[in-house]
Computed example of a mutant assay.
Amino acid sequence: MSWKGKPKRNPGVLESKRVLQAVKNKYVTQSAMFDHFRDKESFIFFRDYDQLFGTLHTFSYEYKSSKILTAVAQGKSVLAIDFQQWVRVEDLNAQEITGYIEESYKI
């Protein structure tokens, strides 16, 4: 199954539903879905910042493991947080996360 490439139209509900149906009966890891959503070639990654409609960050929470993943748009680093440790006020190792805002230009 390929998740790359943007559809010709705004994906909206129908495209999101198609993706959910495609993975419904398959085991997809949190990391795989997270990477898909943060990939700038994914249909769900938007760069229409001039229209105030662009991906700023990606966030994922996996209930069973209490694992949080987050990254800034087009950032190379991923901040992984063990939510249970964080609730116990354990410090995070990360000092910062960075990304890149790249506008798409329509000619």
Results as ranks from 00 to 15, higher is better:
Gln74Lys: 12
Phe43Tyr: 09
Ser2Pro: 06
Ala94Lys: 11
Lys40Glu: 14
Val89Pro: 02
Arg18Lys: 13
Phe43Gly: 03
Glu102Asn: 09
Ser66Asp: 03
Ser77Thr: 14
Val78Gln: 01
Pro7Phe: 04
Val23Pro: 00
Phe83His: 08
Phe43Gln: 01
Ala94Asn: 09
Lys76Asp: 08
Val72Cys: 07
Val89Lys: 15
Tyr49Leu: 07
Ser16Val: 00
His36Ala: 08
Gln51Trp: 06
Ser60Arg: 05
Glu96Val: 00
Thr29Tyr: 02
Phe34Cys: 06
Arg38Asp: 02
Arg18Trp: 07
Leu20Phe: 01
Tyr27Gln: 13
Leu52Cys: 05
Phe59Cys: 02
Asn25Gly: 15
Glu15Pro: 00
Ala71Gln: 03
Gly12Lys: 03
Phe34Met: 05
Gly75Lys: 11
Gln30Pro: 10
Ser42Thr: 09
Ile44His: 01
Arg18Gln: 00
Ser104Phe: 10
Ile68Gly: 05
Pro11Met: 08
Gly5Thr: 07
Phe59Ala: 05
Glu96Lys: 13
Gln84Ile: 00
Tyr100His: 11
Thr55Ser: 04
Lys106Ile: 02
Gln95Val: 10
Ile97Leu: 14
Ser66Cys: 09
Lys24Gly: 04
Glu15Gln: 11
Arg18Tyr: 00
Phe37His: 03
Pro11Arg: 10
Asp48Phe: 11
Gln84Ser: 11
Asp39Val: 13
Glu102Arg: 09
Phe34Trp: 03
Phe46Thr: 13
Arg38Asn: 05
Asp39Arg: 14
Val13Glu: 07
Phe53Trp: 10
Leu14Ser: 13
